[in-house]
């Protein structure tokens, strides 16, 4: 397995969905390729950051909610 293939199989590897032979190839590549270990770590960090930053309760809520939208919604309720 080379770096490109390692990248292709990354998510399946992390989700434990790789067949045994491919998993072994993946692990063997990581043993001999420190840059791919860095890539794996930073991929996991990017996913984690995306989740955390956008987590429902962590994100700042928009403060620019237009009054016209609220009015339109309330008018729809009255119909």
């Amino acid at each position: 397995m080379n770096c490109r293939e390692m990248t292709d199989f990354l998510m399946a590897y992390l989700d434990d969905e790789l067949p045994q032979a491919q998993r072994e190839g993946f692990d063997a590549h990581l043993q001999e390729c420190p840059p791919c270990i860095v890539y794996l770590d930073t991929y996991k960090e990017a996913v984690r950051l995306g989740k955390q930053v956008c987590a429902r309760d962590d994100s700042p809520l928009p403060e620019d909610v237009p009054e016209v939208l609220i009015d339109a919604i309330l008018a729809a309720r009255e119909r």
Binding site: C3, R4, E5, T7, V38, Y39, T42, V53
Partner: peptide, 23 residues
């Protein structure tokens, strides 16, 4: 991006700093 032999064009480098602090 990858080279023809399958290596990274730009070798990945670590993200320094404290991961917990980024967020």
């Amino acid at each position: 991006n990858f080279l023809e032999d399958g290596h990274h064009v730009n070798s990945p480098t670590e993200w320094p700093g404290n991961a917990q602090d980024w967020v």
